[in-house]
């Protein structure tokens, strides 16, 4: 595909999609959203450029191999299992604490959220990997 509009738009839409994906990730514990959806959106932002130009460019431009996203994500997921064991005595038990935030009641942060961040990164890695392996090579 060779559309100037799409190519120009991809620059801005990418940034917006990333921001949107982070919002999705952050609100996701009790509201619609979460790591999977956020990760898909972030992966989509990378795909967007691929649609506008070719996938090779994205592949060349990416400085980090998608596998490393997966590694980061899996490490975070793995790390989120242990605080429950250390503090509460059961593996994977949720440990929550509140990060004070001016003018609000604070942001609740806990191991399930850490897990979600891990899922976010894994999904980004997997999506990009999928796109690379399925896209047409010129």
């Amino acid at each position: 595909m060779n559309s100037v509009i799409l190519q120009l738009a991809s620059k801005y839409v990418r940034g917006l999609l990333i921001i949107f994906s982070v919002i999705m990730l952050v609100r996701g514990h009790n509201l619609p959203g979460g790591g999977f959806i956020g990760g898909l959106l972030a992966g989509l932002s990378l795909a967007y450029k691929g649609f506008a130009f070719t996938q090779d460019i994205v592949e060349k431009e990416m400085k980090v191999r998608p596998e490393y996203f997966m590694v980061i994500g899996l490490v975070l997921v793995f790390a989120s299992l242990w605080p429950g064991l250390l503090l509460e005595g059961t593996l994977m038990q949720g440990v929550w604490f509140t990060i004070p935030f001016p003018f609000t009641e604070g942001y609740k942060f806990g191991t399930p959220f850490l897990f979600d961040i891990g899922v976010y990164f894994v999904v980004i890695g997997v999506t990009v990997l999928f796109l690379f392996s399925l896209s047409e090579k010129n």
Partner: peptide
């Protein structure tokens, strides 16, 4: 000890 169980996540 007989059957072992773990309730994940408490």
């Amino acid at each position: 000890d007989g059957i072992l169980t773990l309730n994940t996540g408490g």
